[in-house]
């Protein structure tokens, strides 16, 4: 893969003990994310996404294993990690009575930003997230989307190498979501900031990221580029015939190149490694029926996960 690794974990594990039960929130995670990537960390709720992020930031201690972020050890050098990494949690709050500027000024000071640069950086960050007009407005007057952009400005003021985003568009309206997504891409494009985006929504990850890691029950079960995932899936063939009966389905399923066959209403959806339209056509006509439609469609990423990993996207 391209460039230098910015996140590296080796057998990273976090075990919680709840009511005498052992819960492996993150189980032997071996993950590498490279500088400049838009990495989507995908998994259902409770799969260990937030726990991973908190361990990478040194905010919770792993049970075992090791990891590095931007070359710093997550156990011994967590403070250094937080100097170069920004984090927008899923649930957070600014100090509502303070203005956008006052909030950012407070966090800028805690980020050890030199005094003479604080004002300049705040204005620069608010400009990028398009909140300059509201610089002196109290945060309590902000919409959820504006707060989310303010959170982005809050991590930008420390000029991070990587930003961790935990379910960043949860609760945002479509307009705010689109704006936030384009901002994330802009930060990656213009400033080469690595994005680590955790989400349970496949369509969100697909729209932002170029590489995806799929987490299930604390285990990373797949990691690849979006193109890589699509290539694994192959093609999708849609069949409509005069009568799609059990025999036809069985025969198509027995074809070597076919991964999966699904009956959706009156149609048959066939996922295959290669173009199997000719074979399908022969089977249908051979069994005395007529082909009404037989076409190829590109599979969606949701379908890739559903078929390959047995998981449904959001």
């Amino acid at each position: 893969m391209n460039g230098k690794a910015i996140i590296e974990t080796k057998n990273l594990t976090k075990i919680y003990h709840v009511d005498g039960r052992e819960i492996r929130a993150v189980d032997n995670l071996n993950l590498t994310v490279y500088e400049g990537e838009l990495f989507g960390y995908l998994g259902p709720n409770g799969s260990g996404k937030t726990t991973t992020i908190l361990m990478l930031l040194g905010l919770i201690q792993p049970t075992s294993g090791e990891g590095k972020v931007a070359g710093y050890d997550i156990i011994r050098e967590s403070k250094m990690i937080r100097r170069v990494a920004g984090y927008i949690p899923e649930r957070y709050s600014f100090y509502e009575d303070l203005s956008a500027y006052e909030n950012l000024e407070y966090f800028a000071k805690l980020n050890n930003i030199p005094k003479n640069e604080v004002e300049e950086r705040i204005k620069w960050a608010l400009e990028i997230v398009e909140l300059s007009k509201w610089i002196n407005a109290p945060v309590k007057t902000f919409s959820r989307g504006m707060k989310q952009r303010l959170a982005l400005a809050n991590v930008l003021i420390r000029k991070p190498k990587i930003i961790f985003l935990d379910e960043p568009t949860a609760g945002l309206d479509p307009h705010a979501t689109a704006k936030f997504r384009s901002l994330i891409k802009k930060l990656n494009n213009e400033f080469n900031i690595t994005i680590f985006l955790s989400s349970h929504m496949l369509h969100e990850v697909r729209q932002i990221c170029n590489k995806i890691g799929f987490l299930k029950d604390g285990r990373l079960i797949a990691i690849d580029t979006i193109d890589g995932f699509m290539n694994k899936m192959g093609i999708k063939v849609i069949l409509e015939a005069t009568n799609i009966n059990h025999k036809i389905i069985k025969s198509i399923e027995s074809l070597n190149d076919v991964n999966k066959v699904l009956k959706v209403n009156d149609k048959l959806v066939i996922y295959a490694r290669n173009d199997v339209r000719l074979d399908i056509s022969k089977i249908v006509t051979g069994l005395g029926e007529y082909v009404l439609t037989l076409k190829i469609e590109p599979p969606t990423l949701e379908e890739v996960f559903f078929i390959v990993y047995g998981e449904k996207g959001g």
Partner: peptide, 14 residues
């Protein structure tokens, strides 16, 4: 409760 603690903790402070 409000969630500001996570923003504080994500700063480079102990």
């Amino acid at each position: 409760e409000s969630g500001s603690m996570l923003l504080l903790l994500s700063c480079p402070i102990y």
